[in-house]
Design a protein around this nucleic acid. Sequence first.
DNA 1: AAGTATCCATTTA
DNA 2: TAAATGGATACTT
Length: 173
Amino acid sequence: MYISPIPTRTGRFIATFSDRELAALAFPAGPSSPLDEAVARTPLPPRVAGWARLTRAALTDALAGQPPAELPPLDLSTGTEFQQGVWQAMLRIATGDTRSYGQIAADIGRPKAVRAVGQACGANPVPVLVPCHRVTASGGRLGGFSSGLEWKRKLLAFEGIEVTDAGKVAPRA
DNA sequence: AAGTATCCATTTA
DNA sequence: TAAATGGATACTT
């Protein structure tokens, strides 16, 4: 596994790569330990460095409300079949658009598996690039977000979606 | 506008 | 195996 910090205007994300693809992405966290720093400075194999660049570009676009031009190879194999289905469905949500848990459930052919969808969202290893934040509760309410509701709100705001105090999501204020 | 019954894949005991 | 647990929903007061 390779670790690489991904600097963005919203903070320093941490990307984790296997030797085949991007395996995980973590939101900016608190101060890192000296050990983390040392790991972060370890030079990456050229191939991995390339993915890191792609990741940064994609993340930069996403955080600017632009659809990423190109995504690094994503390792979604960590999930179960069901979860992968959910993640794929999320990847199909356009930037600036949202779906409800119910719609995702319907998309993958399990109209009633709404709750399971919520769980699968939380298990998403690559937040932002796999837009788990674009999945809202029904009726446009915000719903939850394992990485922090503030992030969800912020990410949606970048895409021009406002969350009103009533908990509704409105396209471009 | 609240409270309740149910929904389903994972995880944990 | 069984029970608990989520980023929930739909139906009932």
